[in-house]
Design a protein around this nucleic acid. Structure first.
Lengths: 111, 111
DNA sequence: CCAACACTTAGCCCTTGCGCTAAGTGTTGG
DNA sequence: CCAACACTTAGCGCAAGGGCTAAGTGTTGG
């Protein structure tokens, strides 16, 4: 078990904080500077920057600095990992349902 | 911002740990006892029980004790929250793409 | 040129998370 | 009845997370 999926760990961890999800949502509407994003968060800039770094280091956003402004944008691809994990999970459930149906069907046939 | 979505916090936090995701995957194939689940995890039983409690308190699994055995099963509904959040996120991206397309179209018309 | 701006770094504090051991509770098979 | 079983509780240790202040760096508008 355990599967060493360090990357999924990071993605879920990054999304587990409301400040960070708010950033993701905001960036869904288009790129923004750190300053713009921070203005909507109830904390100091250094604290907020940590969240930005968490999002970036886990690949959910990309950032680039031009002059003295750092601009952030969403890395949409990363979210596919979550979709994939959910899809795999659902396929497990579906497989189990199928086996249950076969069992029920066989039971009826054997009556 | 921040939106106080304590429940999503919990769901993402619960899924951020590989031991817990392994339990979820395992339960995708059907219910199991705590003992069965713990046997596949590289830690002591009390440590493992904490993970079970995290999963349960965040609604990802349900558990019930009969005699001395506690049986766990997946609460599939909870995963819809993640799907919904992802869907909303994607709709934001889509909305933005639409606006960009309109902009490009208008730009061409104004040439 | 230089003050204002937009971060950035460093470091502290406190809480939470995740592992452990040791000991306790309630069930059950023989 | 009682030993084995399947958790469960209590409490400890350490690392990481998330907030803060204070001070530093590099850009830029006037």
């Amino acid at each position: 078990m355990a599967q060493h999926s360090t990357v999924l760990d990071g993605v879920f961890t990054a999304l587990a904080d409301p400040t960070r999800r708010a950033v993701v949502r905001r960036l869904g509407g288009g790129p923004a500077s750190v300053g713009d994003l921070a203005r909507e968060a109830p904390m100091t800039l250094p604290s907020f920057m940590k969240h930005v770094r968490v999002l970036e280091s886990n690949g959910l956003i990309r950032t680039a600095k031009t002059g003295r402004v750092r601009t952030c944008e969403l890395n949409q691809e990363r979210f596919a990992l979550v979709e994939d994990w959910l899809a795999e999970q659902r396929s497990l459930w579906a497989g189990r349902t199928d086996r249950m149906e076969r069992f029920v069907t066989q039971s009826k046939e054997n009556q």
